[in-house]
């Protein structure tokens, strides 16, 4: 499904701020995999997601989605295969456009846009139903500007947008990190629901180790731009936070004792 082959990425090469974010990372996702990604700050978690999405070009290596080499494709062309939800609730939606317009734009991901109506009456009905299923009361506010919604509502809407036109791969970049615990839980439950309903292949970064263990069928830990731990199936189900912490310690020589990850 997804193949990341020996991808390297260095930011600001040759300067004092040089940072090797990805160090020959290899990663293969099978159809239907729901993989949670954990790792300390600067481990390269967000970078690998951005590389898959085409936000920056790779220095070296290849990225394949369903055996299509997307390494050289620009971000907007890869969008056809990808659903994305970002850490910042502001990033995933257009604040000055209303809820139904945002959904209509998402429904046309990967399709040619020309002079057809931006949204049709039939679409409106379907969006209303799907918003109702979110149970956030958004179905009565279809013509409200998205900028008026709360962070949690915006993330829920972005999730719906990401799955409206079914993606081959769903990329979630700490999409609940900016939310309060209660809202975060609601958005995570919704994530689980959507992923399971459509059997979406998913890559989810999280800072919360309990979530990383609880959700998905596979867990990977990244450190210094590589995957250092990859566990799935029964073994993953049996994991405890203390096991993960021990792995971190082992990988980093105790430097994680101050990391914010300890708190979650």
């Amino acid at each position: 499904m997804l193949k990341v082959e020996k991808v390297y990425k260095t930011f600001n090469p040759g300067t004092i701020n040089e940072k090797r974010a990805l160090n020959g990372i290899d990663l293969v996702l099978e159809e239907g995999d729901f993989v949670t990604v954990i790792g300390g700050n600067g481990a390269g978690k967000s970078t690998i997601l951005n590389m898959i999405a085409g936000v920056y070009p790779v220095d070296q290596g290849r990225i394949l989605i369903d055996d299509i080499d997307v390494t050289k494709l620009p971000e907007h062309k890869r969008a056809k295969y990808l659903g994305r939800v970002f850490q910042d609730p502001m990033t995933g939606t257009a604040a000055d456009m209303n809820i139904e317009e945002n959904l209509a734009i998402a429904a046309r991901r990967g399709k040619r846009r020309f002079l057809g109506w931006g949204i049709t009456g039939k679409e409106r009905e379907s969006y209303q139903e799907q918003l109702k299923a979110l149970d956030l009361g958004l179905e009565t506010r279809m013509s409200s500007k998205v900028g008026l919604l709360s962070g949690g509502q915006r993330q829920a809407l972005t999730l719906l947008m990401a799955s409206l036109e079914q993606p081959k791969l769903l990329l979630l970049d700490e999409h609940t990190a900016a939310l309060d615990p209660k809202t975060a839980k609601k958005v995570l439950d919704l994530t689980k629901e959507i992923v399971e309903k459509d059997h979406l292949t998913t890559l989810m970064i999280t800072h919360n180790m309990k979530d990383a263990i609880r959700l998905g069928n596979r867990l990977i830990m990244m450190h210094e731009g590589r995957v250092i731990y990859d566990v799935s199936g029964e073994e993953k189900k049996g994991l405890k936070v203390s096991d993960l912490l021990a792995k971190f310690e082992e990988a980093s020589g105790g430097e994680f004792s101050n990391d914010r990850m300890m708190l979650s």
């Binding site: 999405a53 971000e75 907007h76 994305r84 990033t91 995933g92 046309r108 991901r109 947008m161």
Partner: peptide, 8 residues
Amino acid sequence: NMARAQGI
């Protein structure tokens, strides 16, 4: 950012 993520 949103526009590009939606294939625009």
